[in-house]
């Protein structure tokens, strides 16, 4: 089947492109890659990147070099839920390592891996600006803060089988 955004997303893409001066449609690359990642299973395959290049009339290499630079873009498949635990200084001071270890035990995976049922991928990330409510993790667009082992247990049960993706689509729909 040919890779294609839904009509709704396509009209959003066109509206986003209009936010930038004529001929500067490449500026829409990061927003459109966010849309692509949330629409196509949470990661950017080479096919998806080529498709985005064609939409913005830029060369595929211009998409690859950008997609590989920014840490939010996943270049490999991820679980239905991507759990991103902050590990930088302020979160470490408040016990982030214990939270990572707890998730690793609970899901029987190491950071960087996906659980056998495909429900969860665990990733450690750098500062997400939640230092005052540390430790924290992000899943989709949501911040889960002041974490404890109990809170993580509840969250994992809540998210299991659901799948939470970034909500950029919802964000831009408001002004469409």
């Amino acid at each position: 089947m040919e890779l294609k955004f839904s009509n709704n997303t396509l009209s959003l893409v066109n509206k986003i492109i209009k936010r930038y001066p004529e001929g500067k449609q490449k500026s829409a690359l990061l927003p459109v890659l966010h849309l692509a990642q949330s629409e196509f299973d949470g990661w950017l395959s080479p096919e998806v990147m080529d498709y985005v290049a064609s939409l913005l009339t830029i060369k595929p290499i211009e998409v690859y070099e950008v997609a590989t630079f920014y840490s939010m873009f996943n270049l490999k498949p991820v679980g239905k839920n991507l759990l991103e635990v902050c590990r930088t200084g302020p979160c470490w001071l408040r016990g982030a390592e214990d939270m990572v270890a707890h998730i690793e035990r609970k899901l029987n995976i190491k950071a960087g891996e996906t659980s056998a049922d495909g429900n969860f991928t665990l990733k450690t990330v750098e500062c997400l600006g939640s230092c005052g409510s540390a430790p924290m993790l992000q899943c989709g667009a949501n911040y889960y803060e002041n974490l404890t082992e109990e809170k993580i247990d509840q969250l994992i049960e809540k998210l299991r089988d659901k799948g939470v993706r970034s909500s950029y689509l919802k964000s831009v729909e408001i002004n469409s």
Partner: peptide, 10 residues
């Protein structure tokens, strides 16, 4: 805005 602040984009 940093991409991680996606809920603030909204």
């Amino acid at each position: 805005i940093r991409g991680e602040y996606m809920y603030i984009v909204r």
